[in-house]
Amino acid sequence: MRDNVLKYVLVAPAVLVVLVTAIWPLAESARLSFTVGRLNRPDSLKQYLGWDNYVWALLEEPAFWNSVWVTGIYTLLTVGLTTFLALGLAILLAPGGRLRSGVQTLLILPFAMSPALIGVSFRFMFNPEFGLFDAFFGALIPPLAQVSWLADPILAFAVCVMADVWGWIPFLTLVLIGGLVSVPRETLEAAEVDGAGPWRVFRDVTLPQLAPVLAVAVILKSIFSLKTFDQIFMLTNGGPGTATQTLSHYIYFNGMKYGQVGFAASVAWLMVIPMVFLTYAYARLVFRKDRDP
């Protein structure tokens, strides 16, 4: 077979799989978002009502805006905290050596853990009767001893953020270590010879060199934070009330529990909007890397 035919034959199955498993459901979701779309009435999946679902979500549904708000704050906090702590840990671990590479190996573990299981384990740790963290924080800050963490809206939210940050620090740390190691040592030494203190070296030499890797890490983490579902479902199931109901959880609830697939699909598409921007930014970084290897 000639190469210029073969090259398309080789790609075809993959393109087909992506079309069927990802592009088709996206398009079908878009279509559903314009229908009445009740699970218990099959004919309603073809009953079109224009932009009504979108208008309803945006204008008539405080619960939608609540989940936008929850997801926004959740994303800001988890991205900020994870990046900050991972950067610190990466700086500590980058020099290498026995202890440090041992700890790096340990970092793989939380990352191989199912997010659902992370949710379960944090619910366990914050159990008011026999949770380890509950006892620990209670001893550290006595007023917290009697608090039932997952029953309080703000504390439950804090626990969700903690679980997320715990689960993602390892991955971001490993990414940033990769970036730190590639900062040329001569540049760092030259800066030190010139009399720059450690903070100046970090700010003026390391950080600019690390910027592209940091950007990749922050964008990826933002995408994963916006999508968060598994841990929340297992940890608080959106509660208490709707205090920890992220957009994914809100969509799940409306689509599956209330059977309003049409409405859920419209919210899902509203959620795609920020994803498009982030993906665009990410794709630019990936392809710039591709052009100059």
Partner: peptide
Amino acid sequence: LATQFVPAVVIVLPFFV
């Protein structure tokens, strides 16, 4: 690349139906 970033919950609704 982009399909990876689409929330799973968007994909799953049509599949359920």
